[in-house]
Design a protein around this nucleic acid. Structure first.
Length: 240
DNA sequence: AAACATATCAACCGCTTTGGG
DNA sequence: TCCCAAAGCGGTTGATATGTT
């Protein structure tokens, strides 16, 4: 048996890769990362599932904050780290929009030093337990849930979907995507949340409007039934 | 302006945990 | 119960940005 070992891409992600990942995750949800990576791989996104997950979780997830830590956040990090130590993911759950990686990095650079300084002049009993943060539920609602569904691993089919997506992605940057994500009351990414096709027409960015209509074109469509979700491909032997 | 030092953060690595067959 | 694959986690690295001399 000959094993063809794919050369997995490493290093920084390109905007194109980000867009492809976002689209794929929106389609299939943020589970099954190997599947996501595999499907996206057809479009030149030769990343491992692990790598895709990391990129999504740490950078592309719609609920993430991308600015500096607020004093409150800073304070909370100090307090929680004192309590839990390097349990970064646990700490991150108390900081909406912040990832464990971000907090970890932040601690290493800013806080370790500050915490040491504080330890020097702070009484051991002093703590500000009044800070209350709600846990962040950043559920990514997939357009099509795979739970319980036996979605077919039809890479050529998916390639077509992504191709149509990509055709409208050209010329759009992640900045534009972020603006849409961050805009108050903005429609969800790709404008395909809950099938609100009409809302899509108001979006400034064609990227966010035309992808779903591409999916609903005769070439590719999705069927959701009680047993799960199946991707159905029709026309020209597509999906066979 | 150039060289060097330091800070920052995205990404990778390897280990552990979890869940399904 | 065991095994395997996927997901999650924390530590580390390396490239780039920024500050200092």
């Amino acid at each position: 048996m000959v094993t063809v070992r794919e050369e997995m891409r490493k290093g920084p992600w390109t905007e194109q890769e980000d867009l492809q990942l976002v689209c794929t995750v929106r389609l299939f949800g943020d589970r099954r990362w190997d599947f996501v990576a595999k499907v996206s791989g057809l479009r030149g996104l030769n990343r491992t599932g692990k790598s895709c997950r990391l990129r999504w979780v740490n950078y592309l997830h719609p609920g993430l904050k991308h600015g500096r830590m607020s004093p409150q956040e800073e304070h909370l990090i100090i307090e929680l780290h004192a309590r839990w130590g390097n349990r970064w993911s646990r700490i991150a759950r108390r900081l909406p929009g912040r990832t464990d990686n971000e907090i970890k990095n932040y601690w290493r650079t800013h806080m370790r030093k500050k915490a040491q300084e504080r330890r020097g002049d702070m009484s051991p009993s002093s703590s500000s337990s009044s800070l209350a943060y709600q846990s962040c539920l950043l559920d990514t609602v997939p357009i099509i849930s795979m739970d319980g569904g036996d979605i077919h691993d039809d890479r050529s089919c998916m390639a077509r979907v992504l191709k149509s997506t990509q055709s409208v992605m050209d010329g759009y940057t992640m900045d534009q995507i972020w603006r849409e994500i961050e805009a108050p009351g903005a429609p969800s990414l790709l404008g395909i949340d809950e099938g609100k096709d009409k809302a899509c027409s108001n979006l400034p960015c064609p990227l966010l409007t035309s992808t779903m209509s591409d999916y609903s074109c005769p070439e590719v469509f999705w069927k959701i039934d009680n047993e799960g979700t199946r991707m159905l491909a029709t026309q020209s032997g597509y999906g066979k």
